[in-house]
Design a binder for these strands. Structure first.
Length: 708
DNA sequence: GAGCACTGC
């Protein structure tokens, strides 16, 4: 066992007394956590069982403590590591930092984290926090996860797509690792329990096996951590795995219901805000709403109402938060209010899990959520407002009891609560599966319909995605990934259609432009239009816009930012450069968080395509060449203008509209390709470029020759 | 003439 503090860097300048008292505080805090009292019992259970389900509510300390218990119990002998997955990046980083501090080491040494764009680990890392998506990517290179002795899947109850796929994959790895690799490798059959080993393009798998030939891997210990009260689903999935309950540490939250059905929950929310303000003791209020528009309208109504209060009661501030809001404005929810002032936060479900706001004593829950669903038949996504599930309602009310007893006001009668679904439909049942299927195939799961999912996605969705992957040339006739296209696509961490676009572009000398395009298409909206400066924002957007459409417009934005940076590069330090880019973004009404994200993706994908040896050429000013390349890449998403001026999606036959955010809105081109098909109030297509419809039979003959 | 829950590689 490694001794604690081995990797600690102790600065001689540290004030010794302060250090000791801090250490003592940490030790006391660790001891006080509910999970601390069951350390020995827990370790025993892990020794006895290969899979364990741990159910623990917030505040139990399971995420920070259990990996340390396992480390101290010797689970990292032989240089093996404990991997802990999280659905979100921020969680992986903050927990790793906390645990490193508790261990008295620097992050990246014994305790580290790895998320996309940021790997803070080293050869000495034994407790590694990471996102579940990242572990799946790691599995492509190391299909037995041979460097891990234990994998802990945290927040499994959230049921993100990545968590679900990971659980299925881990179950398979666990079975395989229980057998001797030595035997498996020498059998003539290269299919080891579904993990297909091919020679040639999958050389990495074979070499990973060779390393382990003659050595038996220890069984993979698996710990599934969930906050939901019902562990049965996980337990049954893992063959009746033992479930272990850990006490949480949550203050009581009193739940209040309305007496009658509420016909307008916006109004109900507004009334409740002011009732709390006028009748209840001090403490901030968090109200859950469904979207930006709703938040803005309630914000305005509430502000008007405040003005009508007697002056002594006007000590109320309204703060909105949703994901599209620029970061600086998001940070306002954390700013402390002056004494005597009550904060009201109007939030989307960003405040359910992603952002924890301190000081909340009252929660208002209208009982609705906007959720994305996917219609595999039309290939269309929809954003629809649904009632929440019971689990979600509990999650929301829990937000009032983090720091002391709280109250939750549900905007519906009590009998409604019992009619709600127990839990939210898992994402895997309501999303496009192309990425999931490509990844599973890359992990050696050839027959995806037979994959042991925790819960099966709809068959229709699987078939639709298989069809798309076949049309993109990722899957060959034998049902395996095609060589080299399918394997290349699986290696690139993008939507399959974007990965394919890069390969297409590399063959027509415009990979540089396509790399920028797919990076920009992979992030949230680049343009930011604040209501109060709408005209100014539109004028700025116009200065970047291309008559061809949104794709070239996005390239213009990216390149303008690069030019700006190149000009300033010589005179400014790195830090100041970042700052001046943010200023440039603000002046141009560009969301700097989105642009930075796009630049990160760009540099990551650039490394990938360079490693693959794809030629990074630019088509220069030949935009015709590039538009043809867009048509060749996105031929599955074509819409044509009808005689009456409306548009029809060629694949589904649905009538669609050009989204108002497009530079081609009101321009009425004959024929366009697009990248998003979403239904909100209308069926919209977004990110659009005009093309010549005659190109299609030439560029995608297999698809369009059949159709016409 | 009109708009976008949240993650992740």
């Amino acid at each position: 066992m490694e001794r604690q503090g081995l990797n600690a860097k102790v600065s001689t300048n540290d004030c010794k007394g302060e250090n000791i008292s801090r250490k003592r505080k940490i030790a006391e805090h660790r001891k006080s956590l509910p999970v601390a009292s069951v350390e020995n019992l827990l370790i025993q259970e892990v020794h006895r069982n290969n899979t364990l389900i741990i159910v623990g509510e917030t505040g139990s300390g399971k995420t920070t403590q259990i990996p340390q218990f396992l480390f101290n119990a010797g689970f990292c002998r032989d240089g093996k590591a404990i991997g802990v997955t999280q659905p979100r990046r921020v969680a992986a980083v903050t927990v790793a930092k906390r645990v490193a501090e508790e261990c008295g080491v620097e992050v990246g040494q014994k305790v580290g984290y790895s998320i996309r764009f940021e790997d803070v680990t080293s050869s000495s890392t034994r407790i590694k926090y990471m996102t579940d998506g990242l572990l799946l990517r790691e599995a492509l290179l190391d299909p037995y996860l041979s460097r891990y002795s234990v994998i802990i899947v945290d927040e499994a109850h959230e049921r993100t797509v990545n968590t679900d796929v990971l659980l299925g994959f881990l179950k398979k790895v666990q079975k395989t690792r229980s057998r001797s690799l030595n035997d498996s490798f020498n059998t003539r059959n290269t299919n080891i329990s579904g993990l297909v080993l091919e020679n040639g393009n999958n050389g990495k798998y074979v070499s990973s096996l060779r390393q382990h030939r003659g050595r038996k891997l220890p069984p993979l210990k698996l710990i599934i951590m969930s906050a939901s009260l019902d562990a049965r689903l996980f337990s049954e999935y893992f063959g009746g795995a033992r479930a272990f309950r850990v006490q949480g540490r949550q203050y009581p939250v009193a739940i209040f219901y309305t007496r009658k059905h509420v016909s307008d929950y916006s109004e109900g929310t507004l009334i409740t805000i002011f009732q709390i303000h006028l009748e209840e003791s001090p403490g901030d209020i968090l109200a859950f709403l469904t979207g930006q528009e709703e938040i803005e309208s309630i914000e305005n109504l509430a502000k008007d109402k405040i003005q009508k209060l007697p002056e002594s009661k006007r000590n109320l501030v309204i703060i909105p938060i949703y994901s599209a809001l620029p970061s600086e404005q998001q940070l306002r929810v954390f700013a402390p209010t002056p004494p005597g002032v009550r904060k009201v936060i109007l939030a989307t479900n960003i405040a359910e899990t992603s952002v924890t706001i301190p000081g909340i004593k009252y929660v208002i829950d209208p009982g609705f959520v906007k959720a994305r669903t996917y219609d595999p038949n039309k290939g269309m996504e929809s954003l629809i407002v649904f009632p929440t599930s019971k689990a979600q309602a509990l999650q929301r009310s829990g937000r009032a009891g983090r720091e002391g007893p709280g109250k939750c006001f549900r905007q519906y009668p009590e009998d409604m609560f019992y009619k709600l679904e127990d839990s939210t439909k898992p994402e895997i049942k309501r999303c496009n599966l192309s990425n999931v299927i490509l990844q599973l195939k890359a992990l050696g799961v050839d027959n995806v319909t037979e994959f042991d999912f925790l819960e099966e996605p709809p068959r229709q969705a699987i078939f639709k995605s298989l069809e798309q992957l076949i049309l993109l040339g990722a899957i060959a006739n034998d049902g395996k990934l095609s060589d080299p296209v399918g394997h290349q696509m699986a290696r690139i961490p993008l939507d399959p259609i974007y990965s394919k676009a890069l390969i297409v572009a590399s063959q027509s000398n415009c990979l540089e432009e396509m790399l920028i395009t797919v990076s920009m298409l992979s992030v949230e909206s680049i343009f930011y239009h604040p209501r109060e400066k709408l005209e100014e924002a539109r004028a700025k957007m116009k200065s970047f816009s291309s008559p061809e459409g949104d794709h070239l417009t996005l390239i213009n934005v990216y390149q303008s930012a690069e030019e700006f940076l190149n000009k300033k590069k010589l005179e400014l330090s790195k830090e100041k450069l970042e700052k001046s880019l943010r200023k440039w973004c603000k002046e141009n009404f560009i969301n700097s968080r989105s642009l930075r994200h796009a630049r990160d993706i760009h540099s990551q994908i650039r490394r990938h395509v360079e490693q693959m040896g794809l030629p990074l050429h630019s088509c220069g000013d030949d935009m015709l060449q590039f538009c043809r390349c867009l048509a060749a890449s996105f031929f599955l998403n074509v819409a044509t203008k009808q005689p009456d001026g409306t548009y029809r999606d060629c694949a589904s036959g649905e009538m669609v509209q050009i989204h108002p955010s497009s530079v081609l809105f009101r321009k009425k081109p004959d024929c366009v390709i697009f990248n998003e098909f979403v239904q909100t109030n209308h069926k919209y297509i977004r990110n659009i470029t005009r093309i010549d419809r005659l190109w299609l039979s030439e560029l995608a003959p297999n698809y369009y020759a059949l159709k016409s």
